[in-house]
Design a protein around this nucleic acid. Structure first.
Lengths: 234, 234
DNA sequence: GGCAAATCTTTCATTAACTGTAAGTTTTAT
DNA sequence: ATAAAACTTACAGTTAATGAAAGATTTGCC
């Protein structure tokens, strides 16, 4: 098994307590690390906070619909997303798949089929563990290799670290202190200009890539990776 | 659409001519590049020779069974593999998935469902186009970044080119002339020693990686990437 | 075993790339 | 208008990749 003996974490999003408990018991037996969402107020945030290896999603939920969740989770992450639902209409299936679901199974579903699909998805996504991905921009943080569209490029170390911080906090302000800490291991005695120079270099580098995102300066605070508005829809 | 306007190529492996023609017509309408296998003697070789973006596979075939094909195709390539079959036994589905199929649909299957699954698979595999992959060893030939297990490393340019040639001809002899051509653009006036030095460096580099494959010298001819026997099974 | 050809290893100088510094320029908020 | 913040450009020190060269080791064959 690649990646060592660390258990894969599955987040289960299902409001029917009976179904949920059965799912938990099925996956526990197969040595998965399970986490259930039981409150459906900030569901997508709660899901992503768990950093799951896979999300198992029911479509009929109180509050936000399952389709909404498909969309928002996929927008912020590329975690494998399996929809397990009693909705057996082809229309629903197509809709879910189009919104970013990776797999669509209808209840009742034999547990072996479910387990096989889950392990299949996990296997396929295994090699993504190298990357941080936001809106199609992927970064291998170990080697600082960036993948955008059909391009790939190895960033110099400092540019790679800056990009890594920006991708870890998409659409949020990353303070200068955070960059100092990441690049030079300290927030003191660092020349602000050194950061500026490296930031300029990174901006120049990514300007050659087919990216819809850009880095904006937040005067007096730091920088921010501005996501693409177009890519927030669909 | 990522990757430009090049049509995605689907290889259809189906012996029933009526079903086949219907599949062709469905996919032609959606602007796929289609290729059918009609002779089932060297099926897996024929499939791979087409360098498909996706393989659509029936399980009931004359000669080699569909399961065998699943296994051999997956062994030699990581192309997305969709099984479309009339076998609706769970046992068959689990078997196919375990052998490396990515998707399992049973006939009759609504064309929209089929198309949705196909485009889903293609989307997920899209970002693999950067890589050459053999037995879990992946190389981004543009940046010479190698991925093995949980490791990733950027190879120096020459080592990357050597690795690329070896991965493009797995288990085959790559002649010294081929390396000369790849690394220095000519087969004349090249110091053999330069190749040897770079080969030594590559061997040292990959010895730090969790690889089951190794480079062996074919005296008087060239080098060969020896695949892992263990990984040839299942 | 002994020998010659092929292959491998180590070291070194050259070259190219990454980096922080420094100095000067432009932008921004008030 | 002005002062602070941010940006740009050029430069020199450092590091990494490369091929040449010389010597050591392995291989096939008698």
């Amino acid at each position: 098994m690649e990646g060592g003996s660390i258990l894969k974490k599955i987040v289960i999003v299902e409001d029917d307590i009976l179904v949920r408990e059965e799912l938990v018991s099925i996956f526990m037996r197969e040595k998965y690390d399970i986490c259930c969402i039981t409150c459906f107020l900030h569901t997508s945030e709660d899901i992503l906070k768990e950093s799951p290896d896979l999300v198992l999603l029911d479509l009929n939920l109180p509050g936000a619909t399952g389709f909404e969740l498909c969309k928002t989770v996929r927008q912020k992450s590329c975690v494998p997303l399996l929809v397990l639902t009693s909705r057996d209409q082809l229309r629903d299936e197509l809709h879910a798949l189009r919104l970013g679901a990776d797999e669509y199974l209808t209840k009742p579903c034999h547990k072996d089929r479910l387990l096989a699909r889950v392990s299949n998805l996990l296997r396929r996504y295994e090699d993504r563990s190298h990357f941080i991905e936001i809106q199609g921009v992927r970064l291998d943080w170990k080697t600082h290799t960036m993948y955008v569209g059909d391009q790939s490029i190895v960033l110099p170390e400092n540019q790679g670290k800056i990009m890594e911080l920006l991708l870890l906090h998409p659409d949020e302000i990353v303070t200068k202190e955070m960059f100092f800490q990441k690049l030079w291991g300290t927030t003191k005695y660092v020349d602000e200009n050194a950061l500026q120079v490296n930031m300029t270099r990174l901006k120049k580098t990514i300007s050659t890539l087919p990216m819809n995102q850009r880095i904006v300066t937040i005067r007096g605070e730091g920088y921010r990776l501005l996501l693409s508005e177009e890519m927030k829809h669909d």
